[in-house]
């Protein structure tokens, strides 16, 4: 233990959307770095898996992309949430909070009761 954690199945999409919600528009690399930072560098993304996940979200209509220029003047593709995406991320976040809350009750040290 103590090493870097993998991304659990199905959570990457939520992380991506949540990150885009807070950051607005990001390119793929920036997005990946941002997710790692947010996790306190606990997560190590396989960057290769990020792009199919982005494509899936885009196909589902939760995010959209366009080409733009990065801060250091490089051409990069930027992603941002759509309206449907914003709705989606709120709903998913709520569900996850609920799920982790329940799980947390099980995992917390036994309380007297």
């Amino acid at each position: 233990m103590g090493g870097k954690a993998d991304v659990w199945q199905g959570t990457l999409a939520l992380m991506v959307m949540r990150t885009l919600e807070t950051m607005g528009s990001l390119h793929g690399y920036g997005l990946a770095r941002r997710i790692e930072q947010t996790s306190g560098d606990k997560l190590e993304l396989n960057y290769g898996t990020l792009y199919p996940a982005l494509l899936k979200l885009e196909q589902e209509g939760y995010i959209r992309s366009r080409w733009g220029t990065s801060e250091n003047n490089r051409k990069a593709k930027f992603y941002e949430l759509t309206k449907a995406g914003r709705k989606r991320v709120r709903k998913a976040a709520k569900e996850w909070k609920q799920a982790t809350g329940i799980l947390a009750r099980f995992l917390s040290p036994a309380e007297e009761g």
């Binding site: 390119h27 920036g30 792009y51 899936k56 196909q59 990065s70 490089r74 990069a76 593709k77």
Partner: peptide, 30 residues
């Protein structure tokens, strides 16, 4: 919607490939 786009994707594969190559390029560069 995703399924439909994927079906459509089958009929013009070239464009998407180029686009993704450019994106990877930019990723590696960054």
């Amino acid at each position: 919607r995703a399924w439909w786009l994927r079906v459509c994707g089958m009929f013009r594969p070239g464009h998407a490939d180029e686009d993704f190559s450019a994106e990877l390029e930019s990723h590696v560069a960054l």
